[in-house]
Write a protein that binds this DNA or RNA. Structure first.
Lengths: 138, 138
DNA sequence: TTTCATGCAAACCTTTTGCAGGATA
DNA sequence: TATCCTGCAAAAGGTTTGCATGAAA
């Protein structure tokens, strides 16, 4: 792996990601960053996100549309994804102990970690659905 | 939702998917199907996979490269993904029960289901790694 | 004969890459 | 000055879509 040099853009990307809780896509980050730095390019955002993921400073998550999202929090934790608005939320639930061991006894190889995402409807979207249903019922 | 009519291609897609255990991508299915039906098109494969997913006949999985994979088995079960060769393997059901309940008590909305994927190295890839390491050690 | 499905190709969207110039150490 | 990084634009890879034709009900 080659040596990293300081870069203003990389620092901005990391700061921006740190400041938010919405696990943005590369493009969401790009749109936000270009407000302060109109010359920043999407390619730079992608390149730095890959780099930061490689060295373990951030984490990459695949949402169910196959679009990658990024997480500043690299500690083990789980997520909740809204099926309606695609919002991705951290869950305070602790990591479930011994989960990797449970898979391990199968005849599959080496189990290192796991990804657990809960799906459903966030409070906001659920409220909207209730409202629509109530109008139908009239 | 509109009415489905019978289609030879859709039946072939479903049969092919049923016959395999590797959770293929759309293109893997396409490559396999065109051996029997050289005129089938990739667009048809995609359209039918979406359709079948919508009506719940099959399930869609996102692997960590953001490429979609398809599963004939729609019952609840978990998967193991090899970080080296991207192989995706079924794990026997019922490793953990009541997982949705764990998320539910949080203040997030409605939890309907979840996706749990274990990551590691399959037996084949692990063997290869051991072999490479042993040569290095000499 | 109406509705749905197909093949083909173009379009689309996210992500990667080549390259010449710019910043860092 | 050697190495890394950037912006830009083009290319790549997966997926969707428009359209004219074909099959099913």
């Amino acid at each position: 792996m080659k040596d990293l040099k300081y870069s203003r853009q990389r620092e901005a990307i990391l700061d921006n990601l740190k400041s938010r809780v919405d696990h943005p896509t590369a493009d969401m980050l790009f749109q936000s960053l270009r407000k302060d730095d109109p010359k920043i390019s999407l390619g730079t955002v992608y390149r730095n996100l890959s780099l930061l993921t490689e060295i373990g400073r951030i984490k990459k998550l695949s949402d169910r549309n196959g679009i990658e999202r990024y997480d500043y929090n690299t500690t083990d934790h789980y997520h909740f994804a809204c099926k309606a608005c695609s919002k991705l939320i951290d869950l305070p639930t602790g990591i479930i102990a011994g989960l990797d061991e449970k898979a391990k006894h199968e005849d599959i190889g080496i189990v290192e970690n796991h990804s657990l995402i809960f799906y459903g409807y966030c409070k906001e979207c659920y409220q909207k659905m209730l409202y629509i249903d109530s109008k139908k019922a009239v």
